[in-house]
Computed example of a mutant assay.
Amino acid sequence: MAQRPERRKSTLGAAHPIEHQNNQAPVEKQPEATELQAVATNQIPPAALQPREEPAPPAATPRAANRAGKAQPKGAFYADEDVLERIRAAWFHTPTTAAEREASFSDFLREAALERMQRREKTYNAGNPFPFVPSGKIARGRR
């Protein structure tokens, strides 16, 4: 029967990270040349330090600027708990086979808000969209 080979030992097994750092000789750092020192010693031409002009980005619309960097804008509303329960129950208990059943509760809320928005645009703005209002312009919380 063959004997097993001897188990290898790590060289790091007995090392302590803090003691190891304290026992090392300090490493002298070479001073790094700054860009101004490099220019003074003619290592970098002064023209290389001039800021490069980049083309101006296209003018963003207020809506595009508001959504910059966001995957999906969010909206929220406040309501009493019993009202929220009724809204949730109305969506949940609509049969999935019904033509008016939305795929998700968020879709249900979005459709309800869109319906009300279109009704107000028709009533108060001759069916045209209202002017844009940035999200931070509307006060938060209950009134």
Rank of each mutant, 00 (worst) to 15 (best):
R67C: 13
E35A: 13
Q24R: 14
A99H: 12
E81V: 10
Q21N: 13
G136I: 00
A38E: 13
A90Q: 03
G69K: 06
P57W: 10
E100H: 15
H20N: 11
Y78W: 15
P62A: 00
K74V: 01
Q30K: 14
L84C: 00
F105E: 00
E32I: 05
G75C: 07
Q24E: 11
L49T: 06
K74H: 05
G136K: 05
L109T: 06
A64W: 09
I18A: 14
L12Y: 15
I44Q: 05
A48D: 11
P131T: 02
F92W: 08
K9N: 06
A126G: 03
K29W: 09
E19Y: 05
R86I: 01
F130Y: 11
V27E: 08
A60T: 07
N125D: 02
Q50T: 03
R52M: 01
S106R: 06
F77Q: 00
T41P: 01
F77R: 05
A15N: 11
P129T: 07
P26N: 11
H93C: 01
A2H: 13
I18E: 11
Q72C: 03
N22C: 02
E121Q: 03
R119V: 00
S10C: 15
T11Q: 11
P129D: 00
P55K: 07
T11N: 15
R101C: 02
A40M: 09
K70N: 05
T123D: 11
E81I: 07
R7P: 12
E32S: 13
Y78G: 00
P95K: 00
G136W: 10
P17D: 05
G13R: 12
A71W: 13
D82M: 05
T11H: 13
A113E: 01
P131H: 07
E54G: 09
H93Q: 04
L84W: 09
P95F: 01
M117Q: 11
G141V: 02
P5A: 08
R116H: 12
W91P: 10
R52P: 02
E102C: 12
T41D: 10
